[in-house]
């Protein structure tokens, strides 16, 4: 963990009532928003542990939907997120479940877009509004969103990582942290790249065109 800012100590600025059950939930919802291509049509929230037991009293449900609509934890629209979702034609459902041996404030979100494509994002709200994303599409990964984060699904083949990092280097993006995950050898894999600086849209578009890269998602939930 990096040195705490005064605004980590005196903050976050947030819609109540709970930094873990409301602000953190909103941030996980926002990651699901960022991981979805095109228009979101429906979402299912699979709530685990404390999330499943107390979500109504903490407004976790409205915060998740608010995040899914792209709101930040201090956005007053979270309170009316159900109405706003309906207006935008987004349906949502909450399912109390057991996700196994995970953090007590965990949720798995299944989002479907207008083409019927779906993405699964699982995250945990670990306190103070901080979150950890633990799974994407069934693959165990890990990032916090504390930095500017780029998620790059690609094929597990030689040379692809070098091409992606070279592209970032030529655009003077400094990589702070980087991890690679894969389903199986030669199958779909994910690069998680975290940077101190914002990764501009041009770099992201260039990365998407690299042979062997399937896509690139910029996840920016803290800035």
């Amino acid at each position: 963990m990096s040195e705490l800012s005064v605004f980590d100590v005196l903050g976050p600025k947030m819609i109540g009532p709970s930094s873990s059950h409301t602000a953190g939930a909103c941030r996980i919802g926002k990651v699901a928003n960022k991981m979805t291509k095109g228009k979101i049509v429906s979402a299912k929230f699979f709530l685990h542990g404390s999330f499943s037991k107390t979500y109504r009293g903490h407004g976790t449900d409205r915060a998740l939907v608010g995040g899914l609509l792209g709101f930040d934890p201090d956005d007053q629209r979270i309170v009316y997120s159900f109405d706003l979702a309906r207006e935008q034609g987004v349906s949502y459902e909450f399912i109390e479940t057991d996700l196994g041996d995970v953090h007590t404030n965990s949720v798995m979100i299944r989002v479907e877009n207008h083409k019927g494509e779906s993405v699964y994002v699982t995250g945990a709200s670990i306190g103070g509004g901080n979150v950890v994303i633990t799974e994407i599409n069934g693959l165990k990964i890990r990032f916090t969103g504390e930095y500017f984060t780029l998620v790059v699904p690609h094929f597990d083949r030689p040379g692809i990582i070098a091409k992606v990092t070279a592209r970032l280097a030529s655009n003077t993006v400094n990589i702070a942290f980087m991890r690679v995950y894969r389903h199986e050898k030669g199958q779909e894999a994910f690069m998680i790249i975290e940077s101190d600086e914002i990764i501009d849209q041009d770099s992201i578009d260039e990365i998407k065109w690299i042979d062997g890269v399937t896509d690139a998602y910029s996840i920016n939930i803290r800035h």
Binding site: V9, G11, K13, I15, G16, S19, G59, R62, I78
Partner: peptide, 18 residues
Amino acid sequence: EVNASMGKIVAAPTAGSS
């Protein structure tokens, strides 16, 4: 009370002690 009714607050240092 604002916090418990989903109003805007600054966690100071937490929501429960805001």
